[in-house]
Amino acid sequence: MTEPISVQLYTVRDALAADRDTTLRRLAEVGYRSVEPFDPTTDPEGFRQVADDLGLSVSGTHAYALLSKEPAEVFDAIATVGTDLVIIPGGIAHEEFTTPDGLARTADLLNGLAEQAAGHGMRIGYHNHWWEIEPEIDGRHAIEALADLLAPGVFLEIDTYWAAVGGADVPALLGRLGERVLALHVKDGPVVKGEPHTAVGAGVMPVSEILAAAPAARRVVELDECATDVFAALAESHAYLTSLEGS
């Protein structure tokens, strides 16, 4: 794996809102060399300058904004932030993942966005939660049925924790999805809805087996709600994942 371990900035959203530059510096000091923004339209020029100064690359970006703003404006911001991987992290009604017709509409939406993204030299991906995993379509998780309907260039960023919460055998799911999976959200905890997350390696997730099932996928640490100090947990997560690389 040559891509550096990344961190989804939603993990430090409160600190980021209070002091973006100091927060990014703290992440770099922990050892992160890559980040994944959740709103690339917030001061993209200023963000890129700070990231460059700190030696931080952008592994990809979430882009809810594509569902509500003028796409060209959003794609321009993403280009400034510095990535070509654009991820839709929700914003689609949960019910759409419970029927074949709903999945077809979802695929049409993502495929349409992918066509627009291609004009900017970018790719569209989709990030799951539990509601794309719990429903089954013809005996498979809904995310698998959706993958069959996506254009070849549309990728998946599998949130491994929410996939487990949704009832998936995560390594097996990753094996079935194969090269469609370009990135993983790596997180840990009790695998219970509503319970806070822990540092990666401190919960019950089979992290090493998950990473082995998708060895080429980018690894992005995210802790939606943390049971301990979030920066300490991010440092522990980075150290744990780095130790797995060396084992």
Results as ranks from 00 to 15, higher is better:
residue 6 S to K: 13
residue 13 R to Q: 07
residue 29 E to N: 04
residue 32 Y to M: 09
residue 36 E to Y: 01
residue 38 F to V: 15
residue 41 T to E: 09
residue 50 V to C: 13
residue 56 L to M: 04
residue 60 G to R: 11
residue 64 Y to K: 13
residue 68 S to D: 13
residue 69 K to L: 14
residue 69 K to A: 15
residue 78 I to R: 08
residue 78 I to L: 11
residue 79 A to P: 00
residue 81 V to F: 11
residue 83 T to Q: 11
residue 85 L to S: 11
residue 86 V to F: 13
residue 87 I to E: 07
residue 88 I to M: 09
residue 92 I to H: 08
residue 92 I to E: 05
residue 95 E to G: 14
residue 99 T to N: 07
residue 99 T to A: 09
residue 103 L to Y: 08
residue 104 A to H: 12
residue 106 T to Y: 04
residue 107 A to Q: 10
residue 110 L to Q: 02
residue 111 N to L: 05
residue 113 L to S: 06
residue 121 G to N: 12
residue 124 I to S: 04
residue 124 I to V: 09
residue 125 G to K: 08
residue 126 Y to I: 01
residue 127 H to W: 10
residue 129 H to R: 09
residue 138 D to G: 13
residue 140 R to Y: 06
residue 149 L to R: 15
residue 153 G to S: 06
residue 154 V to W: 08
residue 160 T to H: 09
residue 162 W to E: 09
residue 162 W to C: 07
residue 167 G to S: 11
residue 168 A to Y: 10
residue 170 V to P: 02
residue 180 R to W: 11
residue 191 V to I: 14
residue 193 K to T: 12
residue 196 P to K: 06
residue 197 H to T: 00
residue 197 H to M: 14
residue 204 V to T: 14
residue 210 I to F: 13
residue 212 A to H: 11
residue 212 A to Y: 08
residue 221 V to G: 08
residue 223 L to C: 08
residue 225 E to P: 00
residue 225 E to I: 12
residue 228 T to A: 15
residue 230 V to R: 10
residue 231 F to R: 01
residue 239 A to V: 02
residue 240 Y to R: 06
residue 243 S to P: 00
